[in-house]
Amino acid sequence: MTAEAITAGRLRRARYRSRVIWTALVLLAAGFAVTLMLGQSFTPPQDVLRVLAGQEVPGASFTVGQLRLPRAVLAILAGLSFGLGGAAFQIMLRNPLASPDIIGISSGASAAAVFAIVVMGLDGAAVSVFAVVAGLGVAIAIYALSFRGGVAGTRLILVGIGVQAMMQSFISYTLSRAPSWDLQEAIRWLAGSLNGAQLAQAVPVLLSLLVFGGLLVMRTRDLEALRLGDDAASALGTDVGRTRAVVVVAAVGLIAVATAVVGPISFVAFLAGPIAARIVGPNGSALLPAALVGAALVLAGDYAGQFLLPGRYPVGVVTGALGAPYLIYLIIHVNRTGASL
C-alpha cells in the first residue's frame, strides 16, 4: 500500500467523524427549536425569535422566556457536561462501568450540594464549589481505597459502587432532616431534574464547560493514547500521570458543577460514551461526540418526561429507565468481553 492509500483512509475516517458531529449538532439545534416552540401550547417561531431577541410578547415571554428557554439551555449545558465527563472517565479507565454516576462521584457531588443548600443554607457559586471539592474528594477516596500496589479496574468499580450507595443514603438522610421536606427537591438530588430551571443557573455550567471541557478536549489525543495501555501511551510521548490528573480534575469539575444545579441526572454520563462510541466506531475519538449525545439525551429525556409520557416525570427518571437495562447488560457481559471504550 502506498502513502496515498493511507492518506485516503485517514481522510475518510476524519470525514465520517465530522459528519457524525455535524449531524448531531443539527439534530440538537432542531430539538432545541422544537422544545422552545412546542410545549403544552404551540408558540409560532416568529414569537420565539422575538422573545429571544428580548422583545416583550404577551404570553410567549413567560412560557418561552421564563419556562422553556432556561430549561432547554440548562438541559443542553448539563448534558454536554455529563456526556464529556462520563466519557472521559470511561476512556481513561478503559471500562464503560467506570462512569462517575456509577462509581459515586456524581452522588458525592450531589450529596455535597444538598448538604450545602439544606443544612448550610448556601446558594449559587458556593454550592458549585462545594460540589466540586466533594466530587474530587470522592474520586481520591475511591482511588485510595482501591489502591493495592496499582489500581485494578474491577476493584475501583466495586469500591465506587459501594461509595455510591453511601452517598445516596447520605442524600436521603440529609433531605429527611430538611425543614421543609419537598418531593421535587428530593428527586432532584437523587435522580436529577430540570424543574424550576432559571437562566442564571446556566452561568456556572457554561463556565465550567469552557474551562474544564476545553481542558479535556485539548487532551483528546492523550486520552486516545491511554487506550493502548499505560506503557504504550507513555512510549508515544504521553505524560500518563499528568494526563490522568488533568482528566480527573476536569471531568469531576464538569460533573460536579452540573450536578450542583440539576442533580445527578441518572445514567447520562454512563450512557453517552458508549452510544457515541457505537456511532463513531473506529473513526476517531468518541469524546466530543459523547458530549453531544449527552446533551441530546437530557434534552429529549426532559421533553419526553414533560409531554410525551402519560404523566409528568423529571428527566432523571426517564434517563434512569433508559440506563438501567444497559447497566444490567454490561454487568452481565463485561467480564466476558472486556471493555468497549
Partner: peptide
C-alpha cells in the same frame, strides 16, 4: 518502546 502487552482499542483498524 514496544511494550510486552499493549492493548488494542476495540475495532481500531491496522492503519489507524
Amino acid at each position: 518502546l514496544l511494550p510486552q502487552s499493549p492493548v488494542a482499542p476495540e475495532g481500531i483498524t491496522v492503519a489507524d
